[in-house]
Write a protein that binds this DNA or RNA. Structure first.
Lengths: 229, 229
DNA sequence: TCAAAAGTGTTGCCACTACACCCATGA
DNA sequence: TCATGGGTGTAGTGGCAACACTTTTGA
């Protein structure tokens, strides 16, 4: 049933833009490449798609191989296909993004030796990136800026229990502007997706803040509605 | 400098979802295929990407070859890459959409003989579509629904001179709900992107409506701002 | 007792909704 | 003169922005 296709030298890859939040800073996951081209350069985690896997499956596999990270829901956001973007031939790349919790529990251990190491890098201090990865990163950042304005997804960046101030910080860092504390709290609580845990922060040398958890059940109802910040 | 790539049987294509508006109905451009697989089926205009053209260039070329249409600004919206989507092998497809003015001036004449004919079909009366094109169409429609709510792009579907009622019809058809006439006009005019032409409709057997034109200069200022319907 | 962040209400403004009647035109 | 769509204003409501002080805690 298979016929010969007219183009045999094209192929495609996945690149992942993973955002994390740590110490009040927005971070992105980069790997140090261990293969030509761009050996020793920093790059977004990415690799070629296998013939027997969907794009979504491929994204999950590649992320796992390059960083050790598993079970992350990533979403496709754009496909980059300029002619000269890859020095070895015509390779287009489907870009994915995700927001995820950082934490000591998720150690970054590349499994493939295609990456020497993987690190969370502050988005304000990016090194030069391989290929057109700067462009891919820029568009990924724009994407989450737009999304965070319309859907309450900032939780995904925080630990399971968090304070309202931490949540506000996430918004402020991503949107790049200060928000009013009272208005932020009023609005966020009005969405009814936060569960008050009746529990306080510990180990701080000031008044301990209430901890909240994201309530998935209630979130389902809100989803689809548009909100804005 | 080029090295052998690990995968040589993959390739990629473009599919275009073009929306038009005519006789109060939203239409999509379909071609009747003249090649296997899915010979004689209806499909979105699409074909394989050449090695020496970017995705955007390819989309423009393919549209021209299959329909005769030129100079349309199309925007990429999603890449479809399930394993079984193409019976001849692993072919992913980058989907584009655009909204454009219908009119007798733009005759549909396929140049490639890959398509027998091209037609504007009412989106409510779609025939069975080749490949996964129903899915691609569905997502394209969702995309313009979301976009029309946030940016005043409905003009693109109308002739250069149009009435406010025609514009409202576009919104109603795409959003699938009735809008209040007075509120619609108030809001639309408040954006300041319509130029009153001091000119009236002709040949209607009722009170002639004022014609407006879309003002590109003013639109530039608005762009980026979020609006909603 | 000081430093640092937590937590809390009110007001004015603007944008949105709902709603009904007269006007102009050609047949 | 009738049928058809064009065109207009207002009042009520709810969400948003702006704004400052008191409370709690550990050092």
């Amino acid at each position: 049933m298979k016929e010969v296709l007219p183009q045999l030298t094209s192929t495609f890859s996945i690149d992942c833009v993973l955002f994390g939040f740590d110490e009040g800073e927005l971070k992105v996951l980069l790997i140090e490449r261990n293969e030509e081209p761009f050996k020793d350069w920093w790059a977004l985690p990415g690799y070629l798609v296998n013939e027997n896997e969907s794009l979504d499956q491929s994204a999950a596999r590649i992320l796992h191989e390059l960083t050790g990270i598993e079970n992350v829901y990533m979403e496709q956001f754009y496909t980059f296909g300029d002619v000269g973007r890859h020095p070895q031939g015509r390779i287009i790349s489907v870009a994915y993004y995700a927001m995820l919790r950082l934490g000591g529990d998720k150690a970054l251990k590349p499994i493939s030796n295609y990456a020497k190491q993987a690190h969370w890098i502050n988005v304000k201090e990016l090194p030069p990136l391989a290929f057109d990865h700067q462009k891919i990163f820029d568009q990924g950042l724009e994407k989450i800026k737009r999304r965070i304005k319309h859907q309450p997804i900032a939780f995904e960046l925080l630990p399971e229990k968090f304070t309202l101030t931490q949540l506000q910080n996430v918004y402020e860092v991503i949107l790049g502007k200060k928000l009013d504390k009272r208005n932020f709290r009023k609005k966020m609580l009005s969405f009814n997706v936060l569960k008050d845990l009746n529990e306080k922060q510990k180990g701080v040398s000031f008044r301990a803040a209430t901890l909240y958890r994201f309530d998935k059940r209630k979130y389902g109802k809100l989803f689809g509605k548009e909100i804005s910040f």
